[in-house]
């Protein structure tokens, strides 16, 4: 499963496009230090936090992408920083659990 497959397989919308990356796992949660400490390289990160710090954490922790759930908004500074740093961002109206589950099913987990 690659990030480029997410729109077709899970119905996620592209907010910030970028290089197609393999997705190795899933991390779901909103507290940044928990994501820093526990997300693994290549994880798709499901969260409602759409600020610049989320982008920084995703970039430093080498997440495959961010998926903003519950229709949460990506603020303009965060969008700009994501584009600059090559961080892919998707959006969905699904709650975090359901969105994570959709990807897990698509990945055969």
């Amino acid at each position: 499963m690659n990030t480029g497959d997410l729109p077709a397989r899970c119905g996620f919308r592209v907010l910030v496009p970028g290089e197609d990356r393999p997705i190795r796992g899933i991390f779901t949660g909103d507290l940044l230090s928990w994501a820093m400490g526990r997300a693994k390289e290549g994880d798709a990160w499901f969260t409602v936090m759409g600020n610049v710090n989320t982008v920084a954490v995703a970039s430093l922790a080498d997440c495959a992408c961010i998926v903003l759930c519950h229709g949460a908004v990506l603020d303009s500074v965060a969008g700009q920083r994501a584009a600059e740093n090559g961080v892919l961002v998707f959006a969905t109206h699904l709650p975090e659990f359901e969105a994570s589950l959709a990807l897990a099913k698509a990945m055969g987990l």
Binding site: S33, W34, M36, G37, N51
Partner: peptide, 16 residues
């Protein structure tokens, strides 16, 4: 409210 303050900063620094 920004997503910080989980009390994981120093433990993460030690962990990594």
């Amino acid at each position: 409210s920004l997503g910080f303050g989980a009390g994981m900063g120093l433990p993460n620094m030690k962990r990594y």
